[in-house]
């Protein structure tokens, strides 16, 4: 439990640190205050279709393997408006480092399989294991909201994965399960909504923006030397203030 709480804290720290730098500059930086959802799954199960259906409301039959794509969507949930950042990952290439990074950065995960492919469900097990390892789960209590999604439910004639089987797996993992179809727009929105509801921290994560002492000491490791002029100036400033005191 203790390890999990520290994990989330670090996430929060980086979020605030990033925020302080981005506020002023016009240059587009990746805002770290986003709520990040990462979509994993085997190649061709319809991750991109699912995301595009949710974000843009569109669907295309053509298949273009994704490398990685990030979408941003402003969402209101629990009476709270925030930006949802959805990362659509690749299923066709193996980049463990990228996957690890995405798991580290992600706040919530959607694991997608195709109900027409048993294999695609099997492949999720390794990803789930990675998430658990990276995020850490103690006492059977999960820290990360995960949604198991069976896509392509419109193709039930080719069904290879029974709903019950996936549901059992979801229960075992302690996550939610849902069957969707990006093509016919079934349950897509609901899947994302359910996922956001899973996170109890959704309310608190964004409101808490206090500077943490820990971040200061952490970044002080980078400290090398001080610009003499600047330090002089700062001394002057200090003097000035002292004199006022």
């Amino acid at each position: 439990m203790s390890s999990t709480s520290s994990e989330t804290k670090i996430v929060e720290q980086t979020a605030t640190a990033g925020c302080s730098t981005t506020v002023s500059g016009r240059q587009q930086m990746e805002p770290n205050t986003d709520y990040r959802v990462v979509v994993f799954g085997a190649a061709g199960v319809g991750k991109s279709s699912l995301v595009l259906r949710f974000v843009r409301g569109t669907f295309k039959d053509s298949y273009i393997p994704t490398i990685e794509d990030t979408y941003r969507q402003v969402i209101s949930s629990n009476k709270l408006v925030f930006t949802l950042q959805i990362t659509d990952t690749t299923g066709s290439h193996q980049f463990p480092a990228m996957q690890r990074l995405n798991i580290q950065k992600g706040h919530a995960f959607i694991l997608v399989y195709s109900i027409t492919s048993r294999q695609s469900l099997e492949e999720l097990k390794a990803i789930y294991k990675d998430i658990v390892e990276t995020k850490g789960i103690n006492n059977g209590q999960k820290t990360v909201p995960i949604m198991l999604v069976g896509n392509k439910c419109d193709e039930s004639s080719n069904r290879d994965v029974q709903t019950a089987l996936a549901a059992r797996l979801a229960q075992e993992w302690g996550c939610e399960h849902m069957e969707t179809s990006a093509k016919t727009n079934v349950n897509v929105k609901e899947a994302f909504q359910e996922l956001l509801k899973l996170d109890p921290k959704n309310c608190t994560l964004f409101s808490d923006t206090k500077q943490n002492d820990k971040s200061l000491s952490q970044s002080s490791l980078v400290k090398n030397s001080v610009n003499p002029k600047k330090s002089k100036e700062s001394n002057e400033n200090r003097k000035k203030k002292c004199s006022i005191m």
Binding site: K223, S225, N227, P228, K241, M245
Partner: peptide, 25 residues
Amino acid sequence: ITASEIRRRLEEEDSKSIKSGLNGG
């Protein structure tokens, strides 16, 4: 200027010097 303000500014100075540590003098 109040004491809290001075503390805030001193902290700022500290973090500044940390960040600008990149290229030395």
